[in-house]
Amino acid sequence: MSYLLEQVLNGLSYGLVLSLIAAGFAIVFTSTGVLNFAHGSIVLLGAYLVAVLHDSIGFWPAVLVGLAGAALVGVAINAVLVRNLADKKPDTAAILMLGVDIVLLTELTRRIGNQVLTLGAPWGASVVRFGDVSLPTGRVLAAGVTVVAFGALWYLFSRTDLGVGMRAAAADGPTASLMGIRLSRTAATGWALAGVLAAVAGIFLTSFPAPGVAPTVALSAFAAIPAWVLGGFDSVPGAVIGGLLIGLTSALVTGYESDLEPFLGSGFGEVAPYVVMIVVLLVRPSGLLGSKEAVRV
């Protein structure tokens, strides 16, 4: 029983981190219509900044720099590249983002080299025990921070002018600009938010139980893509549910792989998220909470 509980808690806490990334995808998509395939390298960038700076300026200041850096890079990508795109079609922008991803990732890979850079997180490799169940402190913190982050996002989007303006701009940009809402500003805010969420996710993805910053962390963003897609391309709550679902599925399938192997073969844990995504999309083609329009892309 405690084993099941442990895997469930593991899955949920990992899923919450995934949902931070998935929410970043969704926010960028709604605020600028871009499928941001460079999101993975922004996740890596945030963690990388913390890893190289924590020694000289301390962990928490380094976290601030990491969040700000990731947000700034997002804003810059939008301002310099996306806004100046001659052809505003989503597929063109998506391909542009793939290019940005390659450039960023190559540079970060070059800098990281074959090292595994430690983050210097104060929680180290400690674990929290609840009776029989133990969970890494980093994961417990991740869950807490993620819940707070989503609470803040909810407040932003439903209780502030900026958030309501962002939703209006996402729903119908030209009309929103007739209300005096500056689309350039809502777009920049969206990219910045996504950058911050990515960096937060990056920090938790590279601290214990993961060892540190290595280029493969950027691939973790791809694990969040099924979460994003099955939640619905344009829905932040959908991304949260999607992340939890994917995290839980992969933890349970991996945890019970030896029992499932006779039916599913080995290595099913890696494929399970995509299977869940496909099943959800078969039943609900626009995702769990996505709007129908978003899927036409």
Partner: peptide, 13 residues
Amino acid sequence: TPATTDLSAQASA
């Protein structure tokens, strides 16, 4: 896969 950087679930199993 190389993308698996957190082996919590595997370790628990």
